[in-house]
Structures are given as structure tokens and as C-alpha cells.
Amino acid sequence: MKKEIKASDVAIMKELQGHLPMVKNPFAAIAEKLGIAEDEVINKTREYGEKKYYRRFGATLRHHKAGFTANGMGIWSVPKEEERAPMGELLSNRPEVSHAYERPSFPDWPYHLFTMIHGESEEEVLKIAKGMSEETGITEYDVLFSTREFKKSSMRYFDAWPLPDNEQ
């Protein structure tokens, strides 16, 4: 269920979900914009992290421009349910793997585990996947590369966050 969040917090998080003002004192700039004290912005920003509203507070990079040029979605078939958790842990140990998830399989989709694998080239990503296959013994796997990016953005949760009736 969606969390009940106060209007004053939504207003602050709206400023944190995009890009911080590119100035030396970004929290002071947000405070000025919202007409509140800088300390309140700082304390609230820390509080949202403690409440796990955000996973991480920091810079998000464009991997291509930073030299990480290829990424592939590794998909892995682990038919035995009891093996999926240990295999998932094993696959996620790799430093080249950024995300590892279990998702449902289907008759025409025999894969259970998904891993995002990053490397300097597609060849390198395939080589890493081959190593992961050898290490885990998972032989039915594939690597899907993105051939076109239609959209890549950050979710703007707070643009249309419904407020409790008494605060609207």
C-alpha cells in the first residue's frame, strides 16, 4: 500500500527526485525555493533515507559516457525451485552484475533469474556470462542486449502524489 506522506514532505521529495541545484550549497537553494530552513531540508533528506524512501542518495551516471559501454540482460533457467535462491546469490556475487532478481517463468519462457551484466563490450559481457554459467552449472541461459533505447528516466513519484483530503 502506498505510504501516507505529508504535503510538506512531498514538497521536499519533489526537489530530491530530480537533479539537485548545481550550486555549492544545494540544500540551501532548495530551502530558499520552498521557504523553509536549510537545516529542515537537510534533516528531512536524511530522515527519508532512514525510512528507506530512497535506496541511495547520490550521482547516477550515464554508463556509456563513463566508459561502461555494454550491458546485457542475462536470463537463467533454474527449474528446481529450491535451487533458485542459492543460484541467485551465486550469480549476484559477480562485481559485473548490478541487478539480480527472480521473476516468474512461463511455458514459452523457461527463465527464472535475471541479471544485468556490465562490461566494456558485448563480447566481454558474453564472456562474463559464460563464466557465470560454468561457475553455477546453469546451462540453459541467454543474454539479451538492448538494441535501442526508447526511454530511460527516473520515476517522478511525487509529481502527482495524492495528499490526504485535509491537506489538499
Binding site: 527526485q17 530530480g18 537533479h19 528507506k52 542518495f57 547516477t60 520515476m155
Partner: peptide, 22 residues
Amino acid sequence: GGVIRRIGGSFDSRGLGWTSTL
């Protein structure tokens, strides 16, 4: 120069009580 896409919070759908899917 485009190396940094943004600096801010990576808000968590589950932490906020939302759901996400592929």
C-alpha cells in the same frame, strides 16, 4: 559533459509502498 545524469535520491518503489514490474 553528460557523465553524471543526475544527483539526487534514488527513490524506492517498495520503500514508498509502490509496486514495480518488468
